[in-house]
Simulated scan of single mutants.
Amino acid sequence: MERILIVEDEPKIADLLQKYLQNANFQTDWLANGTEVSAWVKAHSPALILLDVMLPGKDGLSVCKDIRQFSGVPIIMLTARVEEIDRLLGLELGADDYICKPFSPREVVARVKAVLRRWESVTHASQTDTAPGALVLERDRLIVRSGQAEVSLTLVEFELLEILYKQPGRIFGRDQLMSKVYSDNRIVSDRTIDSHIKKLRKKLSDIAPDQEWIHSVYSVGYKFEP
């Protein structure tokens, strides 16, 4: 049974989420304070985290950033702050999805299942692929390697890199990338894709500083070309 960690400081919301997730055959745990999350995740390795943005002790965006220093566990942000910059910031820090309050608990369960399906489709595929230029993707660990150096990617970052590197030289527009990564047809800003690509480039430069793997094509999109 997959284990979902709910990080939410409103007991009524947390209780409602737990009931719906348990009815969907998930095991649930609940934390209400942001300062407790990182240590708990290290100790228990949940399958997914539902993480509220507004928390006592430490806010959800800071918690997300901390977790991404040691884990690629899927994270869905819960937020009542609907400004685009807040959504973008949450994704930029490594979240895999976001849900705006007020929400339907059924929608939350559906999003949890969708993110876990994406996670499984990536990690259960053939374990290692080699891109042109000896860039190696390890799906089972969401790792990318160049030589002896490696770096962890988030699920979205891995999916974007995989899309690009499987067809080197092909130019993908932002709309194409958004539709492939966010298949539920939600409205996602171009800036969200740009933000993910920016972070992905930074991680690739950390393991191969003399290589530029992902190239911008002005006013069109991106392509992978060693």
Rank of each mutant, 00 (worst) to 15 (best):
R139I: 02
K65Y: 03
I187S: 12
F103W: 10
I171V: 15
Y165T: 07
T123G: 01
V53W: 15
S219Q: 15
A125C: 04
G133L: 09
L142K: 01
V53L: 14
T79N: 06
V53D: 01
E212T: 14
R106E: 15
Y98N: 02
R68G: 02
E225I: 02
Q176G: 08
N185E: 09
T192Q: 05
F103C: 10
V82G: 12
E157I: 03
K19R: 14
I214R: 09
H44E: 14
E92C: 00
L16G: 02
D96L: 03
P56W: 11
N33R: 15
A149Q: 15
F26M: 08
V63H: 07
E159V: 08
K180T: 02
R117T: 14
K58Q: 15
C64S: 13
L16N: 07
I4F: 10
A125K: 10
A39R: 14
K166G: 02
D97H: 12
M54S: 12
K42D: 10
L78R: 00
V136Q: 15
D29S: 15
Q69R: 14
E2S: 14
E225K: 12
G72T: 14
V7P: 07
L161K: 05
E107N: 10
I76H: 04
M54Y: 05
I207M: 07
T79D: 04
R174L: 14
I13A: 12
W40R: 06
R141E: 14
L160K: 01
L161T: 10
Y218F: 13
D66K: 07
E150M: 10
T123Q: 05
V122H: 04
K198R: 11
R87Q: 09
I214L: 13
V115P: 00
Q167T: 14
Y218N: 12
V156K: 09
Q22D: 13
P209C: 10
Q127C: 05
Q22I: 06
H215Y: 08
T35C: 09
N33W: 11
E162Y: 11
K58G: 04
D86F: 03
Y222R: 06
Y20M: 01
T35D: 14
G147C: 12
L93M: 11
E83Q: 15
L155R: 01
F224T: 08
R170P: 00
F26D: 08
P102C: 09
L93N: 07
I171S: 04
S189F: 00
H196T: 02
I13D: 06
G169F: 05
R201A: 01
L55P: 01
D175A: 07
I214E: 08
V156R: 07
L153M: 09
S195E: 02
P11D: 08
R145T: 06
S195W: 01
L137V: 11
Y222I: 09
S146T: 05
S179I: 00
